[in-house]
């Protein structure tokens, strides 16, 4: 295994320890204990993210008036963006309203937690902990399936999701299991893993370029050229990461809306 070799080398005081999954494991360095439970940095971030999101919206709408102030305007722009461009445009104006709080909470919760990767002094994307992403994906799986079953009944819903339209029944034995697999089983897994993998890989790249740059400078020789270059690249990657953080929050929410809208679709 990569890690073991790298670590052995580091322990011997020679060579560079490449960042790996260990950089994301906080289980042995908890911040504090709470009721016998080790509380790690990502857990604190998760709660902090939720508090920030709610505080922002609560402050923005606490004294909501018809003519908005600056904070209320920002809150409305943020809320309206998710409400209109994700909720209304994807789910449709007929029954998007009851999903808007879910989508808004989801989008901004993800956004702030992803942004933690680039916020100084925190600098860790919460959802690079896969289990946290599993939770949100699992919740969205429950929601979109629940909504579909509530509307069409279990059999009707399974038929809607598994039987493709406009295909001759001869193809059903091939397509029905595939559609079922794709629509019911793969969706939550890809949702969670897409978020996790993007955050994980982005953060890994950043660690690699920053610590690698430092190592090269300490190494001397050609490292005096390559090290700063690596840091410049790290800055460039940070900006790319900002884009990815937003995009992942957006895609996660958008796909949630699409799955809900697909579950609500009229039978064809």
């Amino acid at each position: 295994m990569t890690m073991k070799t790298g670590i052995t080398m580091a322990a011997e005081g020679e060579g560079y320890v490449a960042p790996g999954p260990a950089s994301f494991d906080f289980s042995e360095v908890p911040l504090f204990e709470l009721g016998g439970l080790a509380v790690t940095k990502p857990m604190v971030q998760l709660v902090l993210g939720a508090v920030i999101v709610f505080a922002f919206f609560y402050a923005a709408f606490r004294r909501a008036s018809i003519v908005p102030g600056r904070l209320q305007f920002a809150g409305e722009a943020a809320y309206g963006m998710v409400r209109n461009s994700i909720g209304r445009d994807i789910i449709g104006s007929r029954d998007f309203a009851k999903f808007v709080p879910y989508l808004v909470a989801l989008f901004f919760f993800l956004l702030i937690n992803n942004a933690f990767a680039s916020i100084p002094a925190i600098q860790f994307p919460t959802f690079s902990r896969a289990s946290m992403a599993y939770a949100l994906a699992g919740l969205s799986w429950v929601i979109y399936n629940g909504v579909g079953i509530h509307k069409h009944g279990l059999i009707g819903y399974l038929k809607l999701q598994s039987v493709p339209s406009g295909v001759s029944p001869v193809m059903y034995p091939l397509l029905v299991p595939l559609e079922f697999f794709s629509n019911i089983l793969v969706r939550p897994a890809t949702l969670a893993l897409r978020l996790f993998a993007n955050m994980f890989a982005g953060h890994l790249l950043l660690i690699l370029f920053s610590t690698g740059g430092l190592f090269l400078i300490e190494y001397g020789g050609i490292g005096y050229v390559a090290g700063p270059l690596a840091w410049v690249l790290a800055i460039a990657i940070s900006f790319l990461e900002l884009l990815v953080q937003f995009l992942q929050a957006y895609v996660f929410t958008l796909l949630n809306a699409m799955y809900i809208s697909g579950a609500l679709a009229d039978e064809h």
């Binding site: 794709s182 793969v186 897994a189 890809t190 893993l193 897409r194 993998a197 958008l254 796909l255 699409m258």
Partner: peptide
């Protein structure tokens, strides 16, 4: 856009798997 994102999600699913 919504169709493209859906297709992107499906294609990316393979990479994620």
């Amino acid at each position: 856009q919504s169709i493209a994102i859906l297709g992107f999600a499906l294609a990316e699913a393979l990479a994620i798997i």
